[in-house]
Design a protein around this nucleic acid. Structure first.
Length: 938
RNA sequence: GCCUUGGUGGCGGAAUUGGUAGACGCGCUGGAUUCAAAAUCCAGUUCUUUCGGGAGUGUGGGUUCGAUUCCCACCCAAGGUACCA
């Protein structure tokens, strides 16, 4: 008998569900608190022990905040559009909606078992039309707005049209594509609609452009930069190459500065902010124009070191630049063209791998130095990237290592402009303490001064200007996939036109095949009903496209980050079919108080969602510039993979301890459940696990086969996934919850191992025995011992401050100490145990509810007041009073400044280390305490 | 290379503003209970020692009466990022 967790947990989970204990109201007298988890992608592998880590932490905090008198919003949902369901559909023909539905059901079951206090009435799913209606609506807003640099915010495209009609675009300072031409109001008014639309498209926040994209043939889709790891796709590891395509993009670049400065206002971890800063990559410098000999065009370069301009000895252009073909001398054309071809064929990976391989070609053309008028040879080289800065550099071999290497390799002259610095061996790249010389009007100036002087000179002569450059590029928004939000756009005369909100959601059409069409169009190209009738405002059959009013619809869908960029607002008002979120709901809940999730989303989701937030803030839809005041990154729980070693070309596997050099063997991962704690493999189990092992031979050592181990990310493909289900079954959810917290600090990554779980389970059993002895209820209402009160209040103090600090592992320790001591004191006092139970309830809610009920309470423990520490119980008689000395004859009493003179005398004398020092230095003297002077006698 | 975070027993990890390093748990050792086991309880557990002590928080310095904590240099690990001009 005793602590029967499975009965208790079932009972209370049912109770919470029936009474909707955790349902949050959109209005309350209480202060609000919004705690958000990053919602999961419901994958086929189900939940593993790593998933709940963050959910347990946020659940503890939610329950704690409820005890503290807050109206807590703690919702959950599913990021349910995604590639795995689509690939499963390609293989099996099963509709991704079905796969997704099944996986969600399984996730929900597993989540429910752990006793989370989610308000499930607010559940959202990004693949639900009632949800993606609003994702599409936000896209329409993006399409309908541009970024105005003067007001420094997004404005309606109508404002822009008005200005074009009145004054053309010459005075308009807005973010746009660089190929937008200059026109007057008269020209604008005479343009045809298609032409006008084309110009507007160059200004829209969501725009179409023929961009060079990362094309992944293996996945049949375009990938964003952050979906590529080391030149191959993050998912699947396929090759990625460059390809030009007409793609939707989002002008995140317009928000670069605000995304950067906004970081100062939010409580996110330093490392995460730093990642975003790096990703945005702001650098301050100058644009400089170099006229090309015998050509009307100028080369525009970006440099962070304009102070080195007199050290320029040549120019280098990115081979992809259109300008290259225009300026190349006929004699060099052949070499240049073949070099361009060569570069194109290199994948990003090959290009990055060849860092030390210097290559380039002379174009035969020359540029003029703006100040000296020197002739500078123009080269092309693939170390210059087309999509950073202007795709061209002024090469200063004395001040940049790559320029230096390039110059040495091609025997281009190097000019030294640094005083008393040798540049024989390598370039001099330090900025501090540099004195410029050999540089006309910059001679003898230090770095900082030189920059100011040269930029002034550039601007005065119109040779260039001060510029800020960002590494952050606009986010490509088109995906050639089926299982994503359709983009609510149709095409008329080759120009995109938007649907209106009344016509949303634009639901995914039925298709027979989920693969791209034979012509290479996205999967939506397989749909037979996917055209737009602009009169009836309905989706109609493709066969009607020849009618005057029927137009083809967009075939691309949105990327995975679309829905997740705003989902947290939908929880506030998830059922609303009239608006994204009602005014009342958003005015009450405002923003997320605490966001919990993995740091792997630093430069993806967490950046894109800040961008959307700022855009919708500009439009007055969201109330703040940032949506999450505080963010905590939980560390990953790692799995321990089991590895067996195959002799190449055979079916023979050799035990790990018989192997001296593992290079001669092929490591193969096997399911961790086939291995026991001493790394012994269950050979029969393995043979039954997968057919390929049926005929295997095993070389044993001492009668057993030992596997190798490796700690790595938990993943289905590595067969190292541990599901929480078994732990729940064996020890119960309360033990699992406390154990996961006990493993270590929440932010840290840690390998999963169950060796310590019995300690946590024992704790709960001990706690139970404070109430029951041999199934007899032994709680009394006698006056509690002073010592017991002290232990309780020490625990209250420690737990309260540790919860606020998110230090849950130390909380668990404090509970253990408390229960051990109360057991030792044989304390079964009702008052003390009641308070302890409330304290424990965020961590182990099921057992706490059960005890709470047994203590005679009718209501759930959920909204009961959290215990408050009473300092009276904490006072001690005396220990010793440590004293600190800061070297300037000023002493600080650490414990108390309110003690009278006598006790301070004693205090100081009690501390032998201090006494020893005092006797040597300042006998019989006055000692200064802040605000107080005390006489001390030695 | 650069940025961020970290480095403490056999292991996971504690340590408030600089003040008895190693809380709590695992593991291990011994004991009680038991025919026995499970369960439970008690004691011990940084290393070393000639049993007086001595050493000890990645390494080497510094500040301080006193440093895991503060400063400088270096080493290592994890994560991020990169021909970024």
């Amino acid at each position: 008998m005793g602590y029967s967790f499975s009965t208790i947990e079932k009972k209370w989970q049912a109770y919470w569900a029936k009474n909707q204990t955790f349902k949050a109201e959109n209005y309350s007298e209480k202060p609000k608190y919004y705690i958000l988890d990053m919602f999961p992608y419901p994958s086929g592998a189900g939940l593993h022990v790593g998933h709940p880590l963050g959910y347990i932490a946020s659940d503890i905090f939610s329950r704690y905040k409820r005890h503290k008198g807050f109206n807590v919003l703690h919702p959950q949902g599913y990021d349910s559009f995604g590639l795995p369901a689509e690939q499963y559909a390609i293989q099996t023909g099963q509709h991704p909606a079905k796969t997704t539905q099944d996986n969600i059901a399984r996730y929900r079951k597993q989540l429910d078992k752990m006793g989370f206090s989610f308000d499930w009435t607010r559940e959202v799913r990004t693949s639900d039309p009632s949800f993606y209606k609003w994702t599409q609506w936000i896209f329409l807003l993006m399409f309908d707005h541009y970024y105005c640099n003067e007001k420094d915010k997004a404005l309606s495209i109508k404002t822009l049209i008005n200005r074009f009609e009145k004054e053309g675009n010459i005075k308009v300072n807005a973010v746009c594509n660089n190929d937008v031409e200059i026109f007057t109001e008269n020209q604008w008014n005479s343009f045809e609609e298609v032409k006008q639309q084309q110009i507007l498209l160059g200004y829209r926040m969501a725009y179409l452009s023929n961009t060079e994209v990362n094309w992944c043939a293996g996945l049949g889709t375009v990938l964003a930069n952050d979906e590529i790891i080391n030149g191959v796709s993050e998912r699947g590891g396929f090759q990625v190459t460059k390809k030009k395509m007409n793609q939707w993009s989002m002008r995140i670049g317009a928000y670069a500065e605000r995304l950067l400065s906004g970081l100062e206002t939010i409580e996110w971890s330093d490392s995460l902010k730093e990642m975003q800063r790096n990703w945005i990559g702001k650098s301050v410098g100058a644009k400089v124009f170099f006229p090309v000999e015998g050509h009307h065009k100028k080369i525009e370069v970006f440099t962070t070191r304009p102070d080195t301009i007199f050290g320029v000895t040549f120019m280098t252009l990115a081979p992809e630049l259109d300008l290259v073909k225009e300026i190349t001398h006929p004699n060099q054309k052949e070499f240049v063209n073949s070099y361009i071809e060569q570069t194109k064929q290199k994948t990003q990976r090959e290009r990055t791998a060849d860092v030390n391989n210097i290559s380039g070609v002379f174009t035969g053309a020359f540029a003029f130095h703006p100040f000296t008028g020197d002739r500078l040879p123009i080269w092309i080289g693939d170390y210059v990237l087309a999509d950073y800065g202007t795709g061209a550099v002024m090469a200063v071999p004395c001040g940049d290592q790559r320029d230096f290497d390039f110059a040495k390799h091609f025997e281009i002259p190097i000019k030294n402009i640094f005083k008393d610095i040798s540049i024989k061996e390598q370039a001099f790249t330090e900025k501090a303490k540099t004195i410029i010389f050999n540089s006309d009007f910059l001679n003898d100036l230090p770095y900082e001064k030189a920059i100011k002087v040269v930029i002034n000179a550039l601007e005065k002569n119109k040779y260039g200007e001060r510029t800020i450059n960002y590494r952050l590029r606009d986010a490509i928004f088109s995906r050639q996939r089926f299982w994503g939000e359709p983009i609510p756009i149709y095409y008329k005369g080759g120009m995109p036109f938007a649907l209106t909100i009344e016509n949303l959601p634009l639901k995914l059409p039925e298709v027979e095949k989920y693969l791209p069409t034979p012509e290479g169009s996205p999967p939506l190209g397989n749909a037979s009903v996917w055209a737009w009738d602009a009169v009836s405002k309905k989706v109609v059959s493709n066969s009607l496209i020849n009618n005057e009013t029927v137009f083809p619809l967009e075939l691309n869908t949105m990327p995975g980050w679309a829905g997740s960029s705003w989902y947290f607002y939908r929880y506030m008002d998830s059922k609303n079919s009239n608006t994204l979120v009602s005014k009342e709901a958003i005015e009450y809940w405002e923003d997320v108080d605490l966001y919990l999730g993995g740091s792997e989303h630093a430069t993806g989701h967490l950046l894109y969602s800040r961008f959307w937030q700022k855009f919708l803030f500009d439009l007055g839809i969201f109330p703040f510039e940032e949506y999450a005041k505080k963010l905590i990154n939980q560390g990953m729980i790692l799995g321990t993979s089991a590895i067996i070693y195959r002799k190449p070309g055979t079916q023979t596997y050799v035990s790990k301890d018989l192997i001296s050099d593992s290079k001669n063997f092929e490591p193969i991962r096997v399911d961790v459940s086939l291995v026991n704690i001493s790394n012994e493999l269950d050979i029969e189990g393995l043979r039954n696990w997968q057919p390929q092992f049926m005929e295997s031979e095993f070389e044993l050592s001492e009668g057993i086969y030992r596997v190798g181990r490796e700690v790595e990310k938990m993943s289905k493909s590595k067969y190292n996934v541990v599901s929480p289900d078994e732990i729940c079954e064996q020890y119960g959810a309360d033990t699992l919850r406390m154990y996961e917290m006990f493993l270590g600090p929440i932010e840290q990554a840690k390998p999963w191992n169950t060796s310590g779980i019995s300690g946590v389970h024992n704790f709960l059993k001990k706690y139970w025995r404070l109430f029951y002895k041999d199934d007899q209820w032994i709680v009394n209402e006698q006056q509690p011992a002073k010592k017991a009160l002290k232990i309780l209040h020490e625990t209250i103090k420690k737990i309260s401050s540790d919860i606020e600090k998110f230090s849950f592992n130390t909380c668990v320790s404090s509970f253990m100490i408390c229960v051990n001591e109360l057991t030792l004191l044989e304390c079964h006092n009702k008052e003390i145990l009641s308070q302890l139970t409330v304290l424990l309830s965020p961590f182990a809610p099921h057992i706490a509810e059960e005890i709470w009920e047994k203590l005679g309470n009718k209501e759930s423990i959920t909204n009961n007041c959290f215990p408050i520490v009473n300092e009276i119980y904490l006072l001690e008689e005396t220990k010793n009073y440590p004293v600190s000395f800061n070297g300037k004859m000023r002493f600080t009493l650490l414990l108390s400044l309110t003690l009278d003179n006598d006790s301070i005398q004693e205090a100081v004398l009690n501390d032998s280390r201090t006494l020893e020092y005092l006797q040597g230095k300042i006998p019989k003297k006055w000692i200064i305490v802040p605000n107080k002077i005390i006489n001390i006698v030695c």
